[in-house]
């Protein structure tokens, strides 16, 4: 009973959601909308658990007198300050929470995002080494794409353009080669991945719906 009831709920729910995706029946559409509303309600309760976990962990870190107690303390003060400011002054344009969001959170997020540029450089430096045949192919393809994406690549293509029976032909056509690499082999391989992933998702979803996959019952 303890296992059968959840399995039955998942089976009925899964099949209903599948049918409503493909078939236009008002009853199924209403059920779908109801499920989405319930999902939002559950998400609110989940937020309570998240807040509890956050406060507990930061308080524990602060009390244990770790190397840097100022970090958990900053987190706790910021958390309660934003909650209280939000309750008393609201979230509208020009409110303290709005000010904190625009002037603290957004620049901090942008700072972390900008780190990506440096990490891409260091990862590329490590990846583009001609150690074997495959990595040499990768290196050559990467160099072509780099050349095709910078103004120098366009200039080289212009300098090496010759005219054969009235038609212009670039000997070192980096932009053209780049276009070909990005639209033919790159897209082909990407589609193969998407193809496998989609089938994997359908397969795993079916396993859950049919009760073969029961990991979530733990």
């Amino acid at each position: 009973m303890k296992i059968m009831v959840p399995l039955l709920i998942v089976f009925i729910g899964g099949m209903l959601m599948t049918f409503q995706y493909y078939i236009d029946i008002p009853l199924l559409n209403n059920i779908y909308k109801g499920v989405l509303d319930w999902h939002m309600v559950i998400a609110v309760f989940a937020l309570v658990i998240a807040v509890k976990s956050l406060i507990e962990r930061q308080w524990k870190n602060f009390r244990q007198k770790t190397e840097h107690p100022v970090y958990p303390l900053t987190t706790l003060i910021s958390f309660f300050a934003v909650v209280l400011l939000g309750i008393f002054f609201g979230l509208k344009q020009g409110s303290p929470v709005n000010f904190i969001y625009n002037n603290f959170l957004v620049p901090l997020q942008a700072t972390i995002f900008s780190l990506l540029a440096f990490y891409i450089s260091s990862a590329a430096y490590r990846a583009f080494r001609a150690k074997n045949f495959s990595s040499t192919v990768l290196l050559i393809a990467a160099m072509i794409v780099v050349m095709g994406r910078i103004p120098l690549g366009d200039l080289i293509a212009t300098w090496t353009t010759i005219s054969i029976s009235g038609k212009d032909f670039a000997i070192l056509d980096f932009p053209g080669w780049t276009r070909w690499i990005l639209t033919v082999p790159n897209v082909g391989i990407k589609r193969a991945f998407i193809f496998g992933i989609t089938l994997g998702i359908v397969s795993t979803s079916l396993k859950v719906i049919l009760g073969i996959e029961r990991g979530w019952l733990k």
Binding site: G196, I197, G200, S203, I212, G215
Partner: peptide, 26 residues
């Protein structure tokens, strides 16, 4: 574990007949 390998790994770890058959079916 690239793409579908993540889903296959999930079945591979469970190592029961039904999960292994799901990989073959895939």
């Amino acid at each position: 574990l690239m793409g579908e390998e993540l889903f296959a790994a999930s079945a591979y770890i469970q190592n029961d007949e039904a999960s292994l058959r799901s990989i073959f079916m895939l």
